[in-house]
Structures are given as C-alpha cells and as structure tokens.
Design a binder for these strands. Structure first.
Lengths: 144, 144
DNA sequence: TTTGCTGCAAATCCTTTGCAGAGGT
DNA sequence: ACCTCTGCAAAGGATTTGCAGCAAA
C-alpha cells in the first residue's frame, strides 16, 4: 500500500482542475470494486460521456493515481523485469528511475476480514514490493 | 513470493528442451542481481549468442518464469488495473483469468538482512499481492 | 524421427503524445 | 484572460506470433 499522503505530498501538482471528465472517471471508479483496466474504465465512462477519448482516460487515471485519489495496480513502469533468483525474497523499486533491489525479510499476515471471493481462491504465493526513492533519486529530488 | 514448487507443479509443461539459448539466458540471469528487462537480457545474452533473437528471449523468459527457474517482477498480466479505493488494502490476483479482488489484512515485517542500497531508500509505501487461482479457474483446472 | 525451438519479420496491444480548440477558475 | 484539459489521430514501445528450417531427445 502506498502511503497516500506521502505520495500526494511528493507528487501532487498545483493547478489541477476538476473537469467533468475527471470527475466522472473518479465517480465510476469509486462505484465498482472490479479493478478495471484503462480500457474498461473508458467503456464505463463512455456511457455517461459518449465523446470522451481513450487518451483522456489514460491521462486522468495517471493524474488521479498520482494525487492519491485512486490506486494503480502495477508497480513501477510498464516494463517487466526478471530476477534470476527464484528464492523467497522481496523487492524495493524506485518510483523515479525504476531501479529494483532485493529486500530480504520475513512478512507475517493477520487477516481482518477476508472476503468470500478470497477465501475460495487457491493461493499459490504472494509478491511484496516496497516503493520508494533510491539513494540517487532522493538526492536529486532534494533542494540543493 | 511465489511458492515455486506449487507454481512449477501447476504450470510446468512436459517435453521442455534445454536448448543452448535457454541455458545461456538462465546462466546470464543468475549471474546478476540487477533485475534486467527483457531487452537488457537480450543484450547480455547477445554477447555469447550474437544471432539470438529478441523473440526467443521473450519466449524463454516466459517459460523459465513459469517453471519457477526465475521470477517475473510484474504481477499478473501486462495490463495495468485501477482501484477506486485509495485506502490501505491488498489484492489477490488470479494467474489464470487476471481477475483481482481485495484482501483486507494487516502485514508485519521482520528484517533479516537489509542491504545497504535498501537502507538508503526513502520508502514511501509497499504493495502486496497474493497470487492464486480464483474459484472459477480452480474449478476449470480440476479434472472433471 | 519427432516435435519443440529458433531467427526473422510482421503484427498486435497498450499507452503516450502533438496539436488546435474548448473550458475551468 | 490564462493556462489546463480535451478529442482526435498518429506515434511509440513492449511483447507476441506465424512461418519455415533447425536441433534436442
């Protein structure tokens, strides 16, 4: 889970406008719990705004996830990365430069309220990824 | 972390051949801890097999990650998904149909051996995703 | 010998971007 | 008014795929 405040504080841009398109995209996304893809959001929104473009949907999803209004369910960039080490370990990824390093640790869960759908999953494993700024990018982003 | 055995057991195909290309891709990936992209693997491997094609690299990375020899660092498909709920919760994704459902739980870490690079990261948050088969896909994959 | 794998190139899919006009604030 | 945002369409980048020959088992 991204700490929203931290991220919002880090990335929120000034001068954002609440357009009809942006608002409806957010509303539609809040209505469902199906984690739609950009294209699916486009289809949902199109029912209310037939003339909206896919490009606008992409642009707004990007902005809304940067301000912390929604979450993007794909860590890092769109580039897949491969790890020659098949053994249990986690990763930390720099949101700025997309670099990934290994993180060795244990991780324990305590379940609050497992939804039925999840109870019926056959769970094979899990992936944990920390998100942050790598040493170089921290330095670059600090005021000199 | 994917339970390799489980995954390997689930997805390993019979009749795989250990070709020169497949072996060298695996060897090169085992040598580094830099989590290269497919294209970077291609460049690494090209030094030893100048005539290998990018397509072959992609095909083998896919196979090696399905048999559990390596890990692919991008959960689910290449399709990004969006979640209208910005609050702290995790997800479980079906490896078969790519469906995502919410998982509400707490998660605690105990650090073994934090690498220096990680210590110097500015950590903003984390993402946890369980991987498994959803109820429908479990059913489909069972012998009738 | 069988049939999985390869190189090549084209195709596909998802996402991003340039532009000129529209519309928040 | 200012300047962000939009629709459209084209571009871009990553990944996949069809095919005919090659090579593990």
């Amino acid at each position: 889970m991204i700490g929203e405040e931290a991220l919002a504080g880090l990335l929120k841009k000034p001068n954002l406008r609440m357009t009809r398109q942006r608002m409806i995209i957010l509303e539609e996304l809040r209505k469902v719990n199906t984690h739609p893809s950009a294209d699916e959001v486009y289809e949902m929104v199109r029912k209310r705004l037939p003339r909206i473009s896919l490009g606008t949907v992409y642009r707004n999803l990007e902005i809304l996830s940067k301000t912390g209004e929604i979450q993007k369910l794909e860590p890092g960039s769109s580039l897949k990365r491969f790890d020659g080490n098949p053994h249990e370990h986690y990763h930390i990824r720099c949101i700025q430069c997309d670099r990934v390093v290994d993180a060795h640790m244990k991780c324990a869960f305590s379940f609050d309220d497992v939804p039925n759908e999840m109870r019926d999953f056959k769970i094979i494993g899990h992936k944990l990824e920390f998100i942050g700024l790598c040493p170089e990018c921290v330095e670059d982003s600090l005021p000199a």
